[in-house]
Amino acid sequence: MNVPKPYLVRTGLDGILDGLQEGDPFPPERELAARFGVARETVRQALHELLVEGRIERRGRGTVVSRPKLVQPLSLRSYTEGAQRMGRTPGRLLVTWENITVDAEIAAALDVSPSARVMHLERVLLADDVRIGLESTYLPRHRFGDLEQHFDPTTSLYSAIRARGVKFGSATERIETVLPSPREAELLESTTAMPMLLLNRRSVDVDGVPIEVVRALYRGDRVAFEATLDDR
């Protein structure tokens, strides 16, 4: 049976990774091409696949083995809780905090009039100082406007909301794969060719009153999501 060279190269790279630890240098493209007896383009494509999967990463002029992806639960827990559960240090960088009017879809999701001012909070999400996500949160200002005076945007928004006595009831989420815009790629220190996981969420409290609409973009090479399912 004639096994395709790309498959042989990818299998060989997987074997090399099995013998390395996080942070170890990965062999350069030229060395790998000579080892497997293939063109450098074949090796380059296999390395790109590993980059997208988050198993290796560029560091300076070289390539090293990545640390495991941050696994986020699909639940009404905050990003902070998910990061800490994996022993990672969460952080946030404020990009935008403004009061704006939004399109009809977001206004309807928040149950506000199209002319109402909505609080928009945009932050870069960090794990151990590595940029892994870009989160845009829309909150009804008539309900959460006082956060402007009391909330530290580098901390957990969910904790601040819960501290006000608001109890999350449920959320609807949709996840899909997208490519980032040039601005998004720059904020995430990535490229427009790196696939991202786009999460759209609408959360309501225990009385069904809207809390937030969220658009969160996560680096596909840095983050994975998991859910616990049952048949009840």
Rank of each mutant, 00 (worst) to 15 (best):
L188I: 09
G133L: 04
D207G: 15
E135L: 11
R174Y: 12
G165H: 03
S181M: 02
M119E: 14
G220R: 05
G220N: 05
H142S: 14
F151C: 07
T137C: 12
E135H: 12
M194V: 06
P153A: 03
S156E: 10
T155V: 13
V130T: 12
G145Y: 05
R215K: 13
T177K: 13
E189S: 09
M196T: 04
I161A: 06
L199A: 13
E148H: 11
A227E: 08
E122L: 15
V178G: 10
L197A: 07
E148V: 13
S159A: 15
G169R: 13
L126H: 07
L147I: 04
E148N: 14
Y218R: 07
S156G: 07
H150C: 04
S156A: 09
D221S: 02
P210F: 04
A171P: 00
I211R: 08
E226F: 11
M119F: 07
R141W: 06
L147K: 10
L134Y: 12
Q149F: 12
G133C: 03
R183A: 09
R123V: 12
M194A: 12
L188K: 11
H142E: 14
D207P: 11
V223F: 00
F144V: 02
R219H: 06
G165E: 01
L197S: 08
A224W: 00
V118M: 09
V124A: 06
G169T: 12
I132N: 05
T177Y: 05
A227R: 13
E184F: 03
E212W: 04
Y218K: 07
V178P: 08
R219V: 02
S136K: 14
E226R: 14
R201G: 01
E135N: 13
E186V: 05
A224E: 11
L121C: 10
A193S: 12
V223H: 01
T172H: 15
I132Q: 03
E226N: 09
F144C: 01
R164T: 05
G208W: 04
V204N: 09
L125T: 08
L199E: 13
L125W: 03
L179R: 09
I175P: 05
A163W: 00
E173T: 09
R131C: 03
G145V: 05
I175H: 15
F168L: 15
A224C: 02
Y218P: 02
E173Y: 07
M119T: 15
R183E: 13
Q149E: 14
L139H: 04
R164L: 08
